[in-house]
Design a protein around this nucleic acid. Structure first.
Lengths: 187, 187
DNA sequence: ACCTGAACACCGTTCAAGT
DNA sequence: ACCTGAACACCGTTCAAGT
């Protein structure tokens, strides 16, 4: 466990450090060199494990999807009677709690080039969680999953970027607002 | 109109060139130095007009909002009988036609720090277009504008990032799919 | 007032060399 | 197989100097 020439699990250590830097100082501050430096290795070391910076960011996004799924599942367990709505709340809360990671996963150049099938199975499944939740509904029409997913994702994004706030609609608590919006439109 | 030491309208020329570069090669390729180079001025010239790179990007986003509003208005004029739905279609189409610009306007670090009130009045109004369109509806509840805006924005983002496609729902044409999704949920 | 050229600290990536 | 150190081309930003 001491410091040695060979790190042992440098690959995952780099991912963890990258997420930390991403959330604390934002994507533009997250340079490969800094991640390496703060992990205690040389600037060239990451290239033993990742083809380039984009490959590291893809691994970060993949880890993000795992945490995303866990956050949704956790919320759903707290209120199994309103399963779909709870999943939606977990979705929105994850975005608000991990803004930079959420953006990396869904928006911008990195997200657009993410090959879902090339990601871990576990990570891929997080996508399906909400979609399946809606689809399982007895009265669910064909387009309902697209509508529900769009609604939840749009709500998360617009709240995150402060295009509107709960206060705009007379709410003081974020949780109540999200609950109301989702309940009023998700079956 | 000849080349001279003083450019004349360098400020807007830089914004135009930045948008061009943004859409053709993406945000990561859009460096200040390249924008300056391809506008025919020195690397330091932009600093006579913008405090830093972020200020240039804010101006780019502001110009983006103007084009955004124009795109929505144009779509609504084509089908005034379905005003709100048409606005939504313009919203989604703009995103699909200007992916990098749309992300700059709504997602990531730049979007989060955009001060709407500091932007041009014309740019600011583009936000209100869809919101007002929904609110004007006679049977519109308090939360309906948040729901409608979230739905339209989420649909645009998820289509843009290929999280789902029209084909997933049995549609061959993007326009039909968007129309159906919006019609089935917007009043 | 607006623009240039040189400078500084930083970055992504490569590559020969070390363990 | 994994990591280092030096190198290269690039970037954001500053500043004295030119027009």
């Amino acid at each position: 466990m001491k410091k040695s020439y060979h790190h042992g699990n440098l690959k995952s250590a780099l991912v963890v450090q990258a997420i930390k830097l991403l959330e604390s100082e934002g994507l533009s501050a997250m340079s490969l060199r800094r991640v390496a430096r703060e992990t205690g290795v040389s600037q060239a070391a990451p290239y033993s494990h990742f083809k380039d910076k984009r490959a590291l960011l893809a691994a970060v996004a993949s880890e993000g999807y795992k945490r995303f799924a866990a956050r949704m599942r956790n919320e759903a367990e707290l209120d199994p009677d309103h399963y779909t709505i709870s999943l939606g709340k977990g979705y929105v809360f994850f975005a608000l709690e991990n803004p930079a990671l959420f953006h990396l996963m869904f928006d911008g150049e990195i997200a657009e080039h993410l090959d879902l099938n090339a990601m871990d199975k576990e990570a891929y499944e997080s996508y399906q969680l909400l979609v399946d939740g809606v689809a399982q509904h007895p009265i669910s029409g064909k387009l309902d999953t697209a509508v529900a997913w769009s609604l939840v994702h749009g709500l998360a994004t617009l709240l995150l970027n402060k295009k509107f706030t709960p206060k705009d609609y007379g709410f003081t608590k974020m949780e109540h607002f999200v609950d109301q919006v989702l309940s009023s439109s998700l079956k």
